[in-house]
């Protein structure tokens, strides 16, 4: 199991698909400026157990949704109901620090 500080999760993460590999997805904090893209998934994990996300909508507008999230087995982010074009519902954390969240596909 990777070692990380769970409270580092509490922020808004934006999909930096440029940094993805075949097996991993990379997210960056919203403060990091990313290049233009046809669409990016983003989600904010809040300490109170709620999340808000912005999924990719069917005509390229972002699609807002919200729900509840939890950290399972200390390594899996599990998102409840949300946007159809949002982040994966279960993301196993591969690495986490101040400026990068890496999850397995």
């Amino acid at each position: 199991m990777p070692e990380f500080e769970p409270r580092l999760l509490h922020r808004r993460w934006v999909h930096a698909h440029e940094e993805d590999t075949d097996r991993e997805m990379v997210f960056r904090p919203a403060e990091v400026e990313l290049p233009p893209s046809r669409g990016r998934v983003a989600f904010e994990l809040r300490p109170d157990g709620t999340f808000v996300e912005s999924g990719i909508g069917p005509t390229d507008r972002s699609e807002p949704a919200s729900g509840r999230w939890q950290l399972e087995d200390g390594e899996k982010i599990v998102l409840g109901e949300g946007a159809p074009g949002g982040a994966p519902r279960v993301m196993r954390i591969a690495a986490l620090d101040q400026d990068r969240l890496v999850v397995e596909r």
Binding site: G57, A65, G67, E81, G82, A83, G86, R89
Partner: peptide, 13 residues
């Protein structure tokens, strides 16, 4: 129809 995350879709709808 999408089998899951219906709530989000519903919200947009």
């Amino acid at each position: 129809a999408p089998r899951r995350r219906r709530c989000g879709a519903m919200q947009v709808h």
